[in-house]
Amino acid sequence: MASKGRLTYRDAVERTAQVPRPTSQTPRPQKRIVRVTHGIDGLDLWLRDLIRQGLAGLEQKPQAFWEAQAAQLVDAQAPALASRVRQLGHRVGGHPDWPARLLRELGSIAMLTRAFRRIDALPALLQSDVRQLIGWSLTQDEVLASGDSVQDTWTVVGQSASDDGRVRVQRTWLLGVHTERVALVLAFAAGDDAFSPMPTAGTAFDGELVYWPSASPQRALIRTRAHARIARPWPERLPGCDRIDAFHASFTEMLARQPWMDRTLASLRDVTPVHRDGACFVRDAHGDTLPIASAHAWPLLALSGGAPIDLGAEWDGETLTPLAATSAGEYHVLSATANGAT
Protein backbone atom coordinates (compact mmCIF):
# COMPACT_ATOMS: atom_id res chain seq x y z
CA MET A 1 0.00 0.00 0.00
CA ALA A 2 1.49 3.37 -1.01
CA SER A 3 1.73 6.01 1.65
CA LYS A 4 1.97 9.75 1.18
CA GLY A 5 1.69 9.34 -2.58
CA ARG A 6 4.87 7.28 -2.84
CA LEU A 7 5.21 4.49 -5.35
CA THR A 8 5.13 0.91 -4.09
CA TYR A 9 7.40 -1.73 -5.53
CA ARG A 10 4.46 -3.37 -7.34
CA ASP A 11 3.36 -0.05 -8.90
CA ALA A 12 6.88 0.69 -9.95
CA VAL A 13 7.47 -2.68 -11.55
CA GLU A 14 4.38 -2.14 -13.61
CA ARG A 15 5.60 1.31 -14.61
CA THR A 16 9.05 -0.06 -15.48
CA ALA A 17 7.39 -2.58 -17.73
CA GLN A 18 6.11 0.32 -19.82
CA VAL A 19 9.68 1.43 -20.72
CA PRO A 20 10.53 0.26 -24.24
CA ARG A 21 12.14 -3.18 -24.15
CA PRO A 22 15.08 -4.02 -26.44
CA THR A 23 14.09 -5.57 -29.74
CA SER A 24 15.91 -7.90 -32.11
CA GLN A 25 17.06 -4.85 -34.06
CA THR A 26 18.78 -3.29 -31.02
CA PRO A 27 22.62 -3.69 -31.18
CA ARG A 28 23.81 -6.31 -28.66
CA PRO A 29 25.85 -4.02 -26.30
CA GLN A 30 23.04 -1.49 -26.36
CA LYS A 31 20.53 -4.27 -25.74
CA ARG A 32 22.40 -5.35 -22.62
CA ILE A 33 22.61 -1.81 -21.26
CA VAL A 34 18.86 -1.47 -21.65
CA ARG A 35 18.26 -4.81 -19.93
CA VAL A 36 20.61 -3.95 -17.06
CA THR A 37 19.00 -0.54 -16.68
CA HIS A 38 15.60 -2.21 -16.37
CA GLY A 39 17.01 -4.60 -13.80
CA ILE A 40 18.56 -1.76 -11.80
CA ASP A 41 15.33 0.24 -11.94
CA GLY A 42 13.55 -2.73 -10.38
CA LEU A 43 16.32 -3.20 -7.81
CA ASP A 44 16.19 0.44 -6.71
CA LEU A 45 12.47 0.24 -6.15
CA TRP A 46 12.84 -3.01 -4.26
CA LEU A 47 15.54 -1.46 -2.03
CA ARG A 48 13.36 1.54 -1.31
CA ASP A 49 10.47 -0.73 -0.44
CA LEU A 50 12.69 -2.53 2.10
CA ILE A 51 13.46 0.77 3.82
CA ARG A 52 9.87 1.92 3.61
CA GLN A 53 8.53 -1.22 5.26
CA GLY A 54 11.40 -1.47 7.74
CA LEU A 55 14.20 -3.99 8.12
CA ALA A 56 12.73 -5.46 11.31
CA GLY A 57 10.34 -7.66 9.34
CA LEU A 58 13.08 -9.25 7.26
CA GLU A 59 13.86 -11.96 9.81
CA GLN A 60 10.59 -13.61 8.82
CA LYS A 61 11.42 -13.67 5.11
CA PRO A 62 12.54 -16.95 3.56
CA GLN A 63 15.66 -17.14 1.40
CA ALA A 64 13.30 -17.33 -1.58
CA PHE A 65 12.50 -13.66 -0.99
CA TRP A 66 16.09 -12.71 -1.76
CA GLU A 67 16.45 -15.34 -4.47
CA ALA A 68 13.48 -13.88 -6.36
CA GLN A 69 15.09 -10.45 -6.62
CA ALA A 70 18.43 -12.05 -7.50
CA ALA A 71 16.73 -14.02 -10.29
CA GLN A 72 15.38 -10.79 -11.77
CA LEU A 73 18.90 -9.41 -11.87
CA VAL A 74 20.16 -12.57 -13.54
CA ASP A 75 17.46 -12.12 -16.17
CA ALA A 76 18.59 -8.51 -16.53
CA GLN A 77 22.16 -9.74 -17.24
CA ALA A 78 23.55 -8.28 -14.01
CA PRO A 79 24.97 -11.49 -12.46
CA ALA A 80 27.47 -9.91 -10.06
CA LEU A 81 24.76 -7.71 -8.61
CA ALA A 82 22.46 -10.76 -8.41
CA SER A 83 25.05 -12.65 -6.39
CA ARG A 84 25.35 -9.73 -3.99
CA VAL A 85 21.58 -9.57 -3.51
CA ARG A 86 21.43 -13.34 -2.93
CA GLN A 87 23.96 -12.97 -0.12
CA LEU A 88 21.80 -10.36 1.63
CA GLY A 89 19.55 -13.11 2.95
CA HIS A 90 22.47 -14.64 4.85
CA ARG A 91 23.16 -11.32 6.56
CA VAL A 92 19.77 -11.26 8.29
CA GLY A 93 19.90 -12.54 11.87
CA GLY A 94 22.76 -14.61 13.18
CA HIS A 95 24.72 -11.61 14.46
CA PRO A 96 23.62 -9.10 17.09
CA ASP A 97 24.70 -6.26 14.80
CA TRP A 98 22.95 -7.60 11.69
CA PRO A 99 20.63 -4.62 11.05
CA ALA A 100 23.54 -2.17 10.84
CA ARG A 101 25.59 -4.58 8.69
CA LEU A 102 22.64 -5.22 6.38
CA LEU A 103 21.87 -1.52 6.05
CA ARG A 104 25.54 -0.85 5.20
CA GLU A 105 25.42 -3.49 2.45
CA LEU A 106 22.11 -2.20 1.12
CA GLY A 107 23.69 1.25 1.09
CA SER A 108 26.68 -0.05 -0.82
CA ILE A 109 24.37 -1.57 -3.44
CA ALA A 110 22.42 1.70 -3.65
CA MET A 111 25.71 3.54 -4.23
CA LEU A 112 26.49 1.12 -7.03
CA THR A 113 23.15 1.59 -8.78
CA ARG A 114 23.53 5.36 -8.39
CA ALA A 115 27.02 5.15 -9.86
CA PHE A 116 25.70 3.14 -12.80
CA ARG A 117 23.11 5.81 -13.57
CA ARG A 118 25.88 8.42 -13.64
CA ILE A 119 28.52 6.22 -15.20
CA ASP A 120 29.43 8.66 -17.95
CA ALA A 121 30.39 11.22 -15.31
CA LEU A 122 32.83 8.84 -13.57
CA PRO A 123 36.58 8.50 -14.28
CA ALA A 124 37.24 5.83 -16.91
CA LEU A 125 38.83 3.33 -14.51
CA LEU A 126 36.02 3.67 -11.98
CA GLN A 127 33.55 3.12 -14.83
CA SER A 128 35.30 -0.18 -15.41
CA ASP A 129 34.93 -1.09 -11.71
CA VAL A 130 31.21 -0.28 -11.75
CA ARG A 131 30.62 -2.39 -14.88
CA GLN A 132 32.48 -5.36 -13.33
CA LEU A 133 30.61 -5.02 -10.05
CA ILE A 134 27.34 -5.18 -11.94
CA GLY A 135 28.31 -8.18 -14.02
CA TRP A 136 30.11 -7.17 -17.18
CA SER A 137 33.05 -9.51 -17.31
CA LEU A 138 36.20 -9.01 -19.32
CA THR A 139 37.76 -11.82 -21.28
CA GLN A 140 41.40 -12.62 -20.66
CA ASP A 141 42.26 -11.11 -24.04
CA GLU A 142 40.48 -7.89 -23.10
CA VAL A 143 42.39 -7.75 -19.83
CA LEU A 144 45.70 -8.44 -21.58
CA ALA A 145 44.91 -5.70 -24.11
CA SER A 146 43.82 -3.02 -21.69
CA GLY A 147 45.28 -3.88 -18.25
CA ASP A 148 48.31 -2.56 -16.47
CA SER A 149 51.25 -4.97 -16.86
CA VAL A 150 53.77 -5.42 -14.03
CA GLN A 151 56.97 -7.51 -14.03
CA ASP A 152 58.32 -8.57 -10.64
CA THR A 153 59.31 -11.42 -8.37
CA TRP A 154 55.95 -12.44 -6.97
CA THR A 155 55.65 -14.16 -3.61
CA VAL A 156 52.55 -16.31 -3.22
CA VAL A 157 51.54 -15.15 0.24
CA GLY A 158 48.55 -17.42 0.75
CA GLN A 159 45.11 -18.50 -0.32
CA SER A 160 41.58 -18.21 0.97
CA ALA A 161 38.27 -19.45 -0.35
CA SER A 162 34.58 -18.71 -0.14
CA ASP A 163 31.44 -20.47 -1.29
CA ASP A 164 28.15 -18.77 -2.06
CA GLY A 165 26.38 -22.11 -2.46
CA ARG A 166 26.60 -22.00 -6.26
CA VAL A 167 30.18 -21.12 -7.08
CA ARG A 168 33.32 -21.54 -5.01
CA VAL A 169 35.94 -18.84 -5.28
CA GLN A 170 39.61 -19.31 -4.48
CA ARG A 171 41.64 -16.19 -3.84
CA THR A 172 45.41 -16.38 -4.26
CA TRP A 173 47.23 -13.33 -2.91
CA LEU A 174 50.53 -12.31 -4.48
CA LEU A 175 52.95 -9.64 -3.36
CA GLY A 176 55.64 -8.11 -5.59
CA VAL A 177 59.01 -8.18 -3.86
CA HIS A 178 60.34 -5.10 -5.70
CA THR A 179 57.21 -3.15 -6.61
CA GLU A 180 55.37 -4.04 -3.37
CA ARG A 181 52.24 -4.34 -5.51
CA VAL A 182 49.42 -6.56 -4.22
CA ALA A 183 47.72 -8.85 -6.73
CA LEU A 184 44.70 -11.09 -6.37
CA VAL A 185 44.31 -14.06 -8.71
CA LEU A 186 40.85 -15.61 -8.65
CA ALA A 187 39.86 -19.16 -9.55
CA PHE A 188 36.27 -20.36 -9.76
CA ALA A 189 34.74 -23.84 -9.47
CA ALA A 190 31.21 -25.16 -9.37
CA GLY A 191 30.03 -28.02 -7.17
CA ASP A 192 32.81 -30.49 -6.40
CA ASP A 193 34.98 -29.43 -9.35
CA ALA A 194 38.62 -28.77 -8.55
CA PHE A 195 40.09 -25.30 -8.92
CA SER A 196 42.45 -24.76 -11.81
CA PRO A 197 46.05 -25.07 -10.63
CA MET A 198 47.46 -22.04 -8.87
CA PRO A 199 50.99 -21.28 -7.71
CA THR A 200 51.66 -22.90 -4.36
CA ALA A 201 51.42 -20.73 -1.28
CA GLY A 202 54.82 -20.00 0.19
CA THR A 203 56.68 -20.05 -3.13
CA ALA A 204 57.78 -17.23 -5.40
CA PHE A 205 58.22 -16.79 -9.13
CA ASP A 206 59.53 -14.27 -11.61
CA GLY A 207 56.74 -13.25 -13.92
CA GLU A 208 54.47 -10.69 -15.46
CA LEU A 209 51.00 -9.96 -14.13
CA VAL A 210 48.32 -7.97 -15.87
CA TYR A 211 45.77 -6.14 -13.73
CA TRP A 212 42.09 -5.80 -14.50
CA PRO A 213 41.39 -2.15 -15.30
CA SER A 214 40.33 -0.54 -12.03
CA ALA A 215 40.60 2.69 -10.10
CA SER A 216 42.28 0.60 -7.41
CA PRO A 217 43.79 -2.33 -9.30
CA GLN A 218 44.05 -5.55 -7.38
CA ARG A 219 42.66 -8.44 -9.45
CA ALA A 220 45.22 -9.75 -11.90
CA LEU A 221 46.05 -12.63 -14.17
CA ILE A 222 49.42 -14.25 -14.64
CA ARG A 223 50.66 -13.56 -18.15
CA THR A 224 54.11 -15.18 -17.84
CA ARG A 225 55.74 -17.24 -15.15
CA ALA A 226 59.32 -18.50 -15.13
CA HIS A 227 59.30 -22.26 -14.83
CA ALA A 228 62.01 -22.49 -12.20
CA ARG A 229 60.81 -21.79 -8.71
CA ILE A 230 62.98 -19.28 -6.92
CA ALA A 231 62.64 -20.76 -3.51
CA ARG A 232 60.33 -22.85 -1.46
CA PRO A 233 59.52 -21.55 0.99
CA TRP A 234 60.33 -17.90 0.30
CA PRO A 235 63.48 -17.27 2.36
CA GLU A 236 63.39 -13.52 2.92
CA ARG A 237 61.18 -11.07 4.73
CA LEU A 238 58.15 -9.95 2.77
CA PRO A 239 57.74 -6.28 1.96
CA GLY A 240 55.04 -4.71 4.08
CA CYS A 241 54.06 -2.10 6.61
CA ASP A 242 55.98 -1.74 9.85
CA ARG A 243 53.14 0.30 11.27
CA ILE A 244 49.47 -0.63 11.39
CA ASP A 245 48.40 2.98 10.88
CA ALA A 246 50.41 3.09 7.62
CA PHE A 247 48.58 0.00 6.36
CA HIS A 248 45.30 1.60 7.35
CA ALA A 249 46.16 4.77 5.49
CA SER A 250 46.92 2.81 2.31
CA PHE A 251 43.63 0.89 2.58
CA THR A 252 41.74 4.16 3.07
CA GLU A 253 43.34 5.50 -0.11
CA MET A 254 42.23 2.40 -1.99
CA LEU A 255 38.67 2.83 -0.72
CA ALA A 256 38.70 6.50 -1.67
CA ARG A 257 39.50 5.47 -5.23
CA GLN A 258 37.12 2.49 -5.32
CA PRO A 259 34.60 2.49 -2.46
CA TRP A 260 33.26 -1.06 -3.09
CA MET A 261 36.57 -2.76 -2.40
CA ASP A 262 35.71 -5.47 0.12
CA ARG A 263 39.11 -6.89 1.00
CA THR A 264 42.82 -6.60 0.45
CA LEU A 265 46.10 -8.14 1.51
CA ALA A 266 47.65 -6.84 4.71
CA SER A 267 51.38 -7.45 4.91
CA LEU A 268 52.40 -6.39 8.40
CA ARG A 269 55.92 -6.64 9.75
CA ASP A 270 56.93 -7.13 13.36
CA VAL A 271 53.46 -7.44 14.82
CA THR A 272 52.76 -9.41 17.98
CA PRO A 273 49.63 -11.57 18.23
CA VAL A 274 47.96 -11.07 21.60
CA HIS A 275 45.08 -12.88 23.30
CA ARG A 276 43.31 -10.86 25.94
CA ASP A 277 39.84 -11.11 27.47
CA GLY A 278 38.74 -13.63 24.88
CA ALA A 279 39.75 -11.43 21.92
CA CYS A 280 42.75 -11.82 19.64
CA PHE A 281 44.56 -9.01 17.88
CA VAL A 282 47.94 -8.09 16.50
CA ARG A 283 49.85 -5.17 17.95
CA ASP A 284 52.68 -3.24 16.36
CA ALA A 285 55.63 -1.66 18.14
CA HIS A 286 53.64 1.58 18.55
CA GLY A 287 50.71 -0.09 20.30
CA ASP A 288 48.29 0.12 17.35
CA THR A 289 46.15 -2.99 16.96
CA LEU A 290 43.97 -4.86 14.48
CA PRO A 291 41.60 -7.70 15.40
CA ILE A 292 42.17 -11.25 14.14
CA ALA A 293 39.21 -13.39 13.06
CA SER A 294 38.70 -15.63 16.09
CA ALA A 295 38.59 -18.89 14.11
CA HIS A 296 42.12 -18.27 12.86
CA ALA A 297 43.77 -16.77 15.91
CA TRP A 298 45.24 -19.82 17.65
CA PRO A 299 47.57 -21.06 14.90
CA LEU A 300 48.99 -17.54 14.75
CA LEU A 301 49.43 -17.38 18.52
CA ALA A 302 51.05 -20.83 18.46
CA LEU A 303 53.49 -19.71 15.82
CA SER A 304 54.44 -16.49 17.54
CA GLY A 305 54.55 -17.57 21.17
CA GLY A 306 54.06 -13.93 22.11
CA ALA A 307 57.02 -12.70 19.99
CA PRO A 308 56.80 -10.38 16.95
CA ILE A 309 56.22 -11.98 13.54
CA ASP A 310 55.70 -10.86 9.95
CA LEU A 311 52.10 -11.52 8.94
CA GLY A 312 50.34 -11.84 5.59
CA ALA A 313 46.56 -11.69 6.08
CA GLU A 314 43.34 -10.90 4.29
CA TRP A 315 41.80 -7.69 5.65
CA ASP A 316 38.05 -7.24 5.14
CA GLY A 317 37.74 -3.91 6.89
CA GLU A 318 36.85 -5.56 10.18
CA THR A 319 39.18 -8.46 10.90
CA LEU A 320 42.38 -10.04 9.67
CA THR A 321 42.30 -13.62 8.40
CA PRO A 322 45.89 -14.89 8.60
CA LEU A 323 47.27 -16.47 5.43
CA ALA A 324 50.96 -16.83 6.28
CA ALA A 325 53.51 -15.74 8.85
CA THR A 326 57.25 -15.63 9.16
CA SER A 327 58.49 -16.66 12.55
CA ALA A 328 62.18 -17.06 13.45
CA GLY A 329 63.05 -16.61 9.78
CA GLU A 330 60.79 -19.46 8.68
CA TYR A 331 57.81 -18.97 6.38
CA HIS A 332 54.61 -20.74 7.41
CA VAL A 333 51.46 -21.02 5.34
CA LEU A 334 48.44 -20.71 7.61
CA SER A 335 45.54 -20.68 5.18
CA ALA A 336 43.56 -23.91 5.37
CA THR A 337 42.81 -23.89 1.67
CA ALA A 338 46.41 -23.81 0.48
CA ASN A 339 46.86 -26.41 -2.24
CA GLY A 340 49.90 -28.07 -3.58
CA ALA A 341 49.30 -27.66 -7.27
CA THR A 342 52.21 -27.08 -9.58
Partner: peptide, 9 residues
Protein backbone atom coordinates in the same frame (compact mmCIF):
# COMPACT_ATOMS: atom_id res chain seq x y z
CA UNK B 1 20.40 4.11 1.67
CA UNK B 2 23.10 6.33 0.18
CA UNK B 3 23.81 7.82 3.62
CA UNK B 4 24.19 4.27 5.00
CA UNK B 5 26.49 3.39 2.09
CA UNK B 6 28.71 6.40 2.68
CA UNK B 7 28.87 5.71 6.41
CA UNK B 8 29.71 2.08 5.65
CA UNK B 9 32.67 3.06 3.47
Amino acid sequence: LLAAGVCGV
